[in-house]
Amino acid sequence: MDSPIARVDNVRKQYLMGTVMVEALRGLSVDFYAGEYITIMGPSGCGKSTLLNILGCLDRPTSGQYVLGGEDVSTLDDDQLSTIRGTRIGFVFQSYNLIQQLNVLENIEVPLYYQGRPQHESRAIARQLARRVGLDDRMEHKPFELSGGQQQRVAVARALANDPLIILADEPTGNLDSTSGSDILGVFDELNRQGKTLIMVTHSDEVSERAGRVIRLRDGRVERDERRN
């Protein structure tokens, strides 16, 4: 097998809540490979979001190593992590997290803007992505004018803007009705078919059946890691 696109090695994450130390991840190790479609499952509070945040370079492990695309990112500074988030990671959140005063195209352009792409380029990319997620006729709309499913599609388009290495999604269908939910999952399936690496946190077995690999966490460790076919 190829070398992993992302490798988490004996990662611990501790939070100090008042005087109590909470250990969200307790020496977790897992490898991810290019082109995989992975779902992460587990009971609430087992550390799924914490893991995703570390994978997305939003947070740093207390100890352990995280190697992304061959680069050890656990030692990078804040600016370097920002650049990695902007270029190699695409986030999709449960609550869409669109910027309310920007319209669809402008929201999709945000990651491009921070990479210094000139406006005429980023505008063209944003249009193309909006079309790809089926929002041709909503490009100038503000988030509050869109349904939840449409908003999440904007978020997916935005996650694709800088053509990232991995797309991380934390319960992307958690706020959606089943129709819009399967809509979004359809988009993810399509992306994976085109070769994108997807890591998705979900509570739903139905959702996780679409993925080629399911990782179950318990108390900050990998409980089970199974590949289908």
Binding site: D79, S82, G86, L98, I99, V110, P111, Y114
Partner: peptide, 11 residues
């Protein structure tokens, strides 16, 4: 938070 997640640096 959103901007930082999408690649904005502190500056």
């Amino acid at each position: 938070g959103i901007r930082r997640a999408l690649g904005a640096k502190r500056k």
